[in-house]
């Protein structure tokens, strides 16, 4: 069976690349799976978990804090400003991140700062929810 070539890139480096049967991406309009021959598409990625499936099982999962996905018939490129293998993330870390973001929002002054803090808190909350959901499986 044909495989889809995926790569997960961060501005600083390429985090992961390879071939898989399917890549599941948390798109802005809902999760979607990318199989070989997928229609070319550009989508936003919301904070969540990217899942790589190969040989009938999940081979890798990554926590991404939002970005974009570029899909062609052969390739799936995920651009994330922040991404980590799920094994390097713990529920406590994410909860802590949410707490820090909430505190930052509490002390934010000025409109620009408040908006940035709100966005950071939203990302932290989404990440924690996605993590909890995946951890439960």
């Amino acid at each position: 069976m044909a495989k889809v070539t995926y790569s997960l890139v961060m501005p600083e480096r390429e985090l992961a690349a390879g071939e898989a049967d399917m890549v599941i991406v948390p798109g802005g309009d809902g999760d979607f799976g990318v199989l070989p021959g997928h229609i070319p598409m550009i989508s936003t990625v919301r904070p969540g978990i990217v899942e790589i499936q190969d040989g009938g099982k999940t081979t890798a999962r990554y926590v991404v804090a939002g970005g974009f996905a570029e899909v062609t018939r052969e390739r799936c490129t995920i651009l994330a400003e922040e991404a980590t293998p799920i094994a390097e993330v713990s529920a406590e870390q994410l909860a802590e991140r949410e707490r820090v973001a909430a505190t930052a929002l509490g002390v934010a002054t000025g409109e620009g700062e408040r908006k940035a803090a709100e966005a950071a808190l939203g990302v932290a909350r989404d990440l924690r929810r996605a993590y909890d959901f995946h951890a439960g499986r």
């Binding site: 802005g28 309009d29 070319p40 989508s43 974009f68």
Partner: peptide, 19 residues
């Protein structure tokens, strides 16, 4: 091949430009 956009071009563009 022309891309499809999700959710739509404007949303992506608004997100893409600052980045």
């Amino acid at each position: 091949a022309p891309y499809e956009f999700e959710p739509d071009e404007e949303t992506i563009l608004a997100d893409l430009l600052p980045r």
